[in-house]
Nucleic acid binder design. Structure first.
Length: 234
DNA sequence: CCAGACGTTGTT
DNA sequence: GTCTGG
DNA sequence: CCAGACGTTGTT
DNA sequence: GTCTGG
Protein backbone atom coordinates (compact mmCIF):
# COMPACT_ATOMS: atom_id res chain seq x y z
CA UNK A 1 0.00 0.00 0.00
CA UNK A 2 1.10 3.44 -0.91
CA UNK A 3 3.62 3.12 -3.69
CA UNK A 4 2.69 6.13 -5.80
CA UNK A 5 1.83 9.70 -4.83
CA UNK A 6 1.59 13.41 -5.67
CA UNK A 7 3.64 16.28 -4.22
CA UNK A 8 2.78 19.46 -6.10
CA UNK A 9 2.24 22.06 -3.38
CA UNK A 10 5.14 24.48 -3.15
CA UNK A 11 7.25 24.67 0.02
CA UNK A 12 5.89 28.20 0.52
CA UNK A 13 2.38 26.79 0.43
CA UNK A 14 3.18 23.97 2.85
CA UNK A 15 5.10 26.21 5.21
CA UNK A 16 1.91 27.94 6.33
CA UNK A 17 0.60 24.59 7.55
CA UNK A 18 3.72 22.74 8.69
CA UNK A 19 5.78 25.64 10.10
CA UNK A 20 9.22 24.57 8.91
CA UNK A 21 12.02 27.12 8.62
CA UNK A 22 12.80 28.83 5.34
CA UNK A 23 15.24 27.07 3.05
CA UNK A 24 15.85 29.32 0.05
CA UNK A 25 18.50 26.85 -1.17
CA UNK A 26 15.98 24.15 -1.89
CA UNK A 27 14.61 23.92 -5.41
CA UNK A 28 11.26 22.24 -5.81
CA UNK A 29 9.57 20.62 -8.79
CA UNK A 30 5.90 19.67 -8.53
CA UNK A 31 5.37 15.99 -9.25
CA UNK A 32 2.19 14.07 -10.00
CA UNK A 33 3.39 10.50 -10.29
CA UNK A 34 6.11 9.79 -7.75
CA UNK A 35 7.34 6.20 -7.38
CA UNK A 36 9.56 4.50 -4.81
CA UNK A 37 13.30 5.33 -5.11
CA UNK A 38 12.49 8.89 -6.23
CA UNK A 39 13.39 11.94 -4.15
CA UNK A 40 10.46 13.18 -2.06
CA UNK A 41 10.06 16.05 0.38
CA UNK A 42 9.54 15.51 4.09
CA UNK A 43 9.66 17.50 7.32
CA UNK A 44 11.84 16.61 10.31
CA UNK A 45 12.70 18.25 13.59
CA UNK A 46 16.15 19.90 13.54
CA UNK A 47 16.97 21.15 17.02
CA UNK A 48 14.38 23.83 17.79
CA UNK A 49 13.09 24.16 14.25
CA UNK A 50 11.37 22.06 11.66
CA UNK A 51 13.19 21.51 8.39
CA UNK A 52 11.92 20.58 4.94
CA UNK A 53 14.23 18.57 2.71
CA UNK A 54 14.43 15.87 0.06
CA UNK A 55 14.78 12.18 0.96
CA UNK A 56 15.26 9.08 -1.15
CA UNK A 57 11.95 7.19 -0.94
CA UNK A 58 12.84 3.76 0.45
CA UNK A 59 14.62 3.58 3.80
CA UNK A 60 18.27 2.48 3.69
CA UNK A 61 19.47 1.32 7.13
CA UNK A 62 22.98 2.40 8.14
CA UNK A 63 24.34 -1.14 7.78
CA UNK A 64 22.86 -1.82 4.31
CA UNK A 65 25.45 -2.92 1.74
CA UNK A 66 23.85 -1.05 -1.13
CA UNK A 67 21.06 1.38 -1.79
CA UNK A 68 19.10 -1.29 -3.59
CA UNK A 69 17.89 -2.35 -0.16
CA UNK A 70 15.44 0.53 -0.39
CA UNK A 71 13.26 -1.06 -3.04
CA UNK A 72 11.69 -3.23 -0.34
CA UNK A 73 11.43 -0.58 2.37
CA UNK A 74 9.29 2.18 0.87
CA UNK A 75 6.59 1.13 3.34
CA UNK A 76 6.99 0.06 6.98
CA UNK A 77 4.33 -1.86 8.89
CA UNK A 78 3.29 0.15 11.94
CA UNK A 79 2.59 -3.05 13.88
CA UNK A 80 6.26 -4.09 13.90
CA UNK A 81 8.26 -0.83 13.75
CA UNK A 82 9.67 -1.36 17.23
CA UNK A 83 10.88 -4.91 16.44
CA UNK A 84 12.27 -4.82 12.92
CA UNK A 85 16.03 -4.31 12.66
CA UNK A 86 15.54 -2.06 9.64
CA UNK A 87 13.20 0.37 11.37
CA UNK A 88 13.57 0.26 15.15
CA UNK A 89 16.32 2.89 15.41
CA UNK A 90 14.58 5.29 13.06
CA UNK A 91 11.31 4.72 14.93
CA UNK A 92 12.96 5.81 18.18
CA UNK A 93 14.83 8.86 16.96
CA UNK A 94 14.21 9.70 13.31
CA UNK A 95 10.54 10.24 12.57
CA UNK A 96 9.28 12.61 9.90
CA UNK A 97 6.15 13.98 8.26
CA UNK A 98 5.54 13.46 4.57
CA UNK A 99 3.03 15.96 3.14
CA UNK A 100 1.32 14.88 -0.09
CA UNK A 101 -1.52 16.21 -2.23
CA UNK A 102 -2.80 12.65 -2.49
CA UNK A 103 -1.81 9.12 -3.42
CA UNK A 104 -2.68 6.38 -5.92
CA UNK A 105 -3.86 2.91 -5.17
CA UNK A 106 -4.66 0.08 -7.58
CA UNK A 107 -7.88 -1.73 -6.78
CA UNK A 108 -7.88 -5.39 -7.73
CA UNK A 109 -10.46 -5.98 -10.46
CA UNK A 110 -12.46 -9.18 -11.10
CA UNK A 111 -9.56 -10.94 -12.81
CA UNK A 112 -6.01 -11.00 -11.54
CA UNK A 113 -4.84 -9.08 -14.62
CA UNK A 114 -7.36 -6.32 -14.05
CA UNK A 115 -6.28 -3.50 -11.76
CA UNK A 116 -7.86 -0.06 -11.67
CA UNK A 117 -5.90 2.94 -10.37
CA UNK A 118 -7.66 5.35 -7.99
CA UNK A 119 -6.54 8.72 -6.71
CA UNK A 120 -7.09 9.50 -3.02
CA UNK A 121 -7.09 13.01 -1.58
CA UNK A 122 -8.52 15.07 1.27
CA UNK A 123 -12.00 16.37 0.67
CA UNK A 124 -10.60 19.79 1.55
CA UNK A 125 -7.60 21.30 -0.25
CA UNK A 126 -5.29 20.49 2.66
CA UNK A 127 -2.34 18.17 2.20
CA UNK A 128 -2.44 14.67 3.64
CA UNK A 129 0.37 14.22 6.17
CA UNK A 130 1.86 10.73 6.26
CA UNK A 131 3.81 9.35 9.21
CA UNK A 132 7.35 8.59 8.04
CA UNK A 133 10.77 7.48 9.26
CA UNK A 134 14.11 8.67 7.92
CA UNK A 135 17.67 7.39 8.01
CA UNK A 136 21.12 8.30 6.74
CA UNK A 137 23.48 5.96 4.96
CA UNK A 138 27.05 5.99 3.69
CA UNK A 139 28.20 3.74 0.88
CA UNK A 140 31.14 1.75 2.28
CA UNK A 141 32.31 1.10 -1.29
CA UNK A 142 32.37 4.81 -2.04
CA UNK A 143 33.30 6.73 1.13
CA UNK A 144 33.83 9.92 -0.88
CA UNK A 145 30.17 10.08 -1.89
CA UNK A 146 27.84 12.24 0.21
CA UNK A 147 25.59 10.29 2.60
CA UNK A 148 22.07 9.50 1.41
CA UNK A 149 19.10 10.48 3.52
CA UNK A 150 16.17 8.16 2.92
CA UNK A 151 12.66 7.70 4.25
CA UNK A 152 9.71 5.31 4.41
CA UNK A 153 5.94 5.65 4.76
CA UNK A 154 4.35 3.87 7.71
CA UNK A 155 1.29 1.74 6.92
CA UNK A 156 -1.60 0.45 9.01
CA UNK A 157 -4.79 -1.57 8.58
CA UNK A 158 -7.34 0.00 6.23
CA UNK A 159 -10.22 1.88 7.85
CA UNK A 160 -13.74 1.12 6.66
CA UNK A 161 -13.51 3.56 3.75
CA UNK A 162 -10.16 2.28 2.47
CA UNK A 163 -11.24 -1.33 2.96
CA UNK A 164 -13.19 -1.26 -0.31
CA UNK A 165 -9.94 -0.64 -2.15
CA UNK A 166 -7.25 -2.29 -0.07
CA UNK A 167 -6.55 -3.94 3.27
CA UNK A 168 -3.72 -1.55 4.14
CA UNK A 169 -3.35 2.25 4.07
CA UNK A 170 -0.68 4.82 4.84
CA UNK A 171 -0.81 6.33 8.33
CA UNK A 172 -2.35 9.78 8.00
CA UNK A 173 -1.62 11.80 11.12
CA UNK A 174 -4.02 14.27 12.71
CA UNK A 175 -2.62 17.78 13.01
CA UNK A 176 -2.59 17.56 16.80
CA UNK A 177 -0.23 14.56 16.60
CA UNK A 178 2.40 16.11 14.29
CA UNK A 179 4.50 17.63 17.08
CA UNK A 180 4.74 14.42 19.09
CA UNK A 181 5.63 12.35 16.03
CA UNK A 182 8.42 14.76 15.06
CA UNK A 183 9.95 15.11 18.54
CA UNK A 184 13.13 12.97 18.61
CA UNK A 185 13.26 13.21 22.40
CA UNK A 186 9.88 11.62 22.81
CA UNK A 187 10.52 7.89 23.16
CA UNK A 188 7.33 6.54 24.67
CA UNK A 189 6.80 3.78 22.12
CA UNK A 190 3.34 2.84 23.38
CA UNK A 191 2.06 6.40 22.92
CA UNK A 192 3.61 6.66 19.46
CA UNK A 193 2.09 3.35 18.41
CA UNK A 194 -1.33 4.64 19.39
CA UNK A 195 -1.00 7.40 16.78
CA UNK A 196 -0.58 4.76 14.08
CA UNK A 197 -3.91 3.00 14.56
CA UNK A 198 -6.32 3.40 11.64
CA UNK A 199 -8.55 6.45 12.07
CA UNK A 200 -12.11 6.47 10.77
CA UNK A 201 -12.44 10.26 10.46
CA UNK A 202 -9.98 10.92 7.64
CA UNK A 203 -12.25 12.73 5.16
CA UNK A 204 -10.61 11.08 2.19
CA UNK A 205 -12.23 10.86 -1.24
CA UNK A 206 -11.40 8.50 -4.10
CA UNK A 207 -11.95 8.48 -7.85
CA UNK A 208 -10.68 6.28 -10.67
CA UNK A 209 -7.95 7.70 -12.90
CA UNK A 210 -6.34 6.85 -16.23
CA UNK A 211 -4.27 3.68 -16.39
CA UNK A 212 -1.55 5.94 -17.85
CA UNK A 213 -0.53 6.56 -14.25
CA UNK A 214 0.95 3.06 -14.23
CA UNK A 215 3.90 4.28 -16.26
CA UNK A 216 6.12 6.57 -14.21
CA UNK A 217 7.17 8.51 -17.31
CA UNK A 218 3.70 10.04 -17.24
CA UNK A 219 3.99 12.87 -14.73
CA UNK A 220 1.36 15.58 -15.19
CA UNK A 221 -1.68 16.98 -13.37
CA UNK A 222 -3.81 14.91 -15.77
CA UNK A 223 -2.82 11.81 -13.80
CA UNK A 224 -5.06 12.89 -10.92
CA UNK A 225 -8.12 13.67 -13.04
CA UNK A 226 -11.23 11.50 -12.74
CA UNK A 227 -12.27 9.16 -15.55
CA UNK A 228 -15.46 7.11 -15.91
CA UNK A 229 -15.27 4.20 -13.46
CA UNK A 230 -16.38 1.53 -15.95
CA UNK A 231 -15.18 1.44 -19.54
CA UNK A 232 -18.24 1.63 -21.78
CA UNK A 233 -19.02 -1.54 -23.76
CA UNK A 234 -20.38 0.31 -26.82
C1' DC B 1 29.07 -19.80 18.83
C1' DC B 2 29.17 -17.80 13.65
C1' DA B 3 26.72 -16.84 9.23
C1' DG B 4 23.49 -14.52 7.04
C1' DA B 5 19.57 -11.77 6.79
C1' DC B 6 17.64 -7.49 7.72
C1' DG B 7 11.35 -5.48 3.94
C1' DT B 8 6.48 -4.69 1.94
C1' DT B 9 2.73 -5.65 -0.92
C1' DG B 10 -0.32 -9.23 -2.46
C1' DT B 11 -1.30 -13.87 -3.74
C1' DT B 12 -1.27 -18.84 -3.16
C1' DG C 1 23.87 -2.61 14.26
C1' DT C 2 20.93 -6.55 15.72
C1' DC C 3 18.20 -10.58 15.25
C1' DT C 4 17.41 -15.39 13.50
C1' DG C 5 18.71 -19.94 12.06
C1' DG C 6 21.78 -23.60 12.23
C1' DC D 1 3.51 1.01 -6.89
C1' DC D 2 3.82 -0.66 -12.19
C1' DA D 3 6.53 -1.48 -16.55
C1' DG D 4 9.85 -3.79 -18.68
C1' DA D 5 13.67 -6.66 -18.97
C1' DC D 6 15.38 -11.05 -18.41
C1' DG D 7 21.78 -13.36 -22.13
C1' DT D 8 26.49 -14.46 -24.19
C1' DT D 9 30.65 -13.90 -26.88
C1' DG D 10 33.49 -10.84 -28.96
C1' DT D 11 34.54 -6.53 -31.01
C1' DT D 12 34.40 -1.40 -31.07
C1' DG E 1 8.56 -16.08 -12.49
C1' DT E 2 11.54 -12.48 -10.61
C1' DC E 3 14.46 -8.62 -10.53
C1' DT E 4 15.52 -3.74 -11.85
C1' DG E 5 14.45 0.95 -13.02
C1' DG E 6 11.55 4.80 -12.74
Amino acid sequence: MCGRMVQSKSPKNLQAILNFKDNPEMSFTPRYNIAPTAEIIAVRQKEEERELSYFHWGLIPMWARDRNFSTQTFNARSETLAEKASFKEAFKRRRCLIPVDGFYEWQQGPSSKNKVPFYFQKESEEPIVFAGLWEFWRDANNPEAPPIESCTIVTTAANSFMQSFHHRMPVMLAKEDWQLWLDPNFEDIATLERLLKPRESLSISAHPVSSAVGNTRNDSPDMTKPIASQPSLF
